[in-house]
Amino acid sequence: MKAKRIDLIKEYILENEHVSLKELEDTFNVSMNTIRRDIAQLLEDPRFEKVYGGISVKKNQLISFENRNTENQEVKQAIAETAAQFIQNGDLIYIDSGTTTKYILDYLDKDIQITIITNSLDVILRAEKFKNISVFVFGNIFKKTTRSFVGLPSEQVVNRYNITKSFMAATAVSIENGLMNSDIMEYELKKHIVEKAEINYLLVHADKFDKSTLLTYAPLSAIDTIITDKQFDDSYTSYFENNNIDVLTVD
């Protein structure tokens, strides 16, 4: 249990770059003494350093959003192109923030008439060139590391919108833990969107599967269609069949 918690703390710090000890205490629901012991062990990892009141990722260890975006770019674009085929005139869709979902708009017809809800700066900027796309933005705090807006809208706000389709991203995915992310400020939004949308699509690169991170925002069974480049083993294919999940695999 302790080893897994330390791994999750590492993931959380990498995602947020700098966190206070108090934030870790509250997020992981353990005592400050436990956090201090965990941090003492975590500091054996050369990626991290102790700073006043907290812990940070060493600057030369950070992987910027721009660099993450270039990793497996052709595959991510192929996944997004496949997803774009499911968007039709009149849809009200949610496009999640992420280095794959941002490409969806690159493959839409220039005259398409849809409404987009998003918290992604890249989606907002891409939508500018479409004369018939309306955009609603969730989140009131801009997070530079992910180029996304965070800050939780209330469940009542999310429920005002009749979302026909969501196009979701995830930091990690597994049968046991479902769809995961490591940002508490995005967790509630993702959770509400998946519950509200009529159809949920998951756009995810193969290397995200069978990993683990801090928070599960939805079970894998909540997804209707997975678009990926991964080839699945029997445990996954059986799960997909039992839960009526379609899988589209790009080259």
Rank of each mutant, 00 (worst) to 15 (best):
I6Q: 04
I6Y: 03
L8P: 05
K10P: 02
Y12S: 06
I13N: 00
L21N: 11
T27M: 07
N29Y: 09
M32H: 13
I35A: 01
R36Y: 03
R36V: 03
R37N: 09
R37A: 11
I39F: 03
L42S: 10
E44A: 12
R47C: 12
K50D: 05
V51M: 09
G54P: 04
N60V: 02
N60D: 15
Q61N: 14
L62V: 14
R68M: 09
R68S: 06
T70I: 11
E71L: 14
V75I: 15
V75W: 00
V75P: 00
Q77G: 00
E81M: 10
E81W: 01
A84L: 07
G90K: 08
D91Y: 09
I93Q: 09
L108G: 03
K110S: 15
I112G: 07
Q113D: 13
T115S: 14
K131M: 10
K131E: 14
I133K: 04
F136S: 11
G139W: 11
I141M: 13
K144C: 08
T146I: 12
S148I: 02
F149C: 08
F149V: 07
P153D: 06
E155W: 07
M168F: 03
A172D: 08
V173Y: 02
G178Q: 01
M180G: 02
L189S: 00
K190A: 12
K191S: 09
H192M: 13
I193M: 09
Y201M: 04
L202Q: 07
F209Y: 15
K211F: 14
S212G: 11
S212E: 15
T216M: 07
A218H: 04
S221E: 15
I223V: 15
D224I: 10
I226V: 13
I227Q: 06
T228I: 04
Q231V: 14
Q231T: 11
F232H: 02
Y239P: 11
Y239V: 11
N242A: 15
I245G: 07
D246L: 08
V247K: 03
L248G: 00
